[in-house]
């Protein structure tokens, strides 16, 4: 059995040799590829700190076996800014005080990017809160997080409209 897989991580394709079938995407990113922005909180799919985008969809990387994602396109917090230019969701989290200690923040931001792509919440704060409920914040920065998601979504929609015009 071959444990060689290929992943595209933050835009760069990588051939990866796994030394153990048990490795999750989370452990692969953090322990093998030195991408420690993705956090390990509960490691059981309950806290959302490990949220990444796989083929454009937000998932818990702690419950995703790396082997079964051979060929996937992965976006982590390290890949969302363009050089020194923050992603609109990152900028909105700063502007709206969407964090305190910062541990859950990479997962919150990746989850928010996924939420905006899903396009189901609209501008309803209750729908945003519901759609962000898979990300726990021990500091209780939820009010700022909700505001940040709404602000980022407005900013991204404005950009999309300008681009379309």
């Amino acid at each position: 059995m071959s444990l060689a897989i290929t992943l595209t991580i933050n835009g760069a394709q990588q051939a990866i040799a796994l030394d153990d079938p048990r490795i999750t995407l989370l452990d692969l990113l953090r322990e093998r590829l030195d991408l420690t922005g993705t956090k390990k909180g509960c490691d059981r799919g309950q806290c959302g700190a490990c949220t990444i985008l796989v083929d454009g969809r937000r998932i818990n990387s702690c419950l995703a076996l790396a082997l079964s994602h051979d060929g996937a396109d992965i976006l982590t917090i390290e890949g969302v800014a363009q050089g020194d230019r923050l992603h609109p969701v990152q900028a909105a989290f700063i502007a709206q005080d969407g964090f305190q200690c910062g541990f859950c923040t990479p997962g919150q931001i990746m989850s928010a990017i996924g939420l905006i792509r899903e396009g189901q919440a609209g501008d309803d704060p209750e729908r945003v809160r519901e759609a962000m409920s898979g990300n726990i914040c021990r500091c209780g920065a939820y009010i700022g997080i909700t505001e940040a998601v709404l602000e980022a979504q407005r900013a991204m929609m404005g950009t999309a409209e300008r681009d379309a015009a």
Binding site: T51, R58, I59, G114, E118, S133, N135
Partner: peptide
Amino acid sequence: GASAQLRNA
């Protein structure tokens, strides 16, 4: 059920 991340998987 569950969370948005879990429902995606």
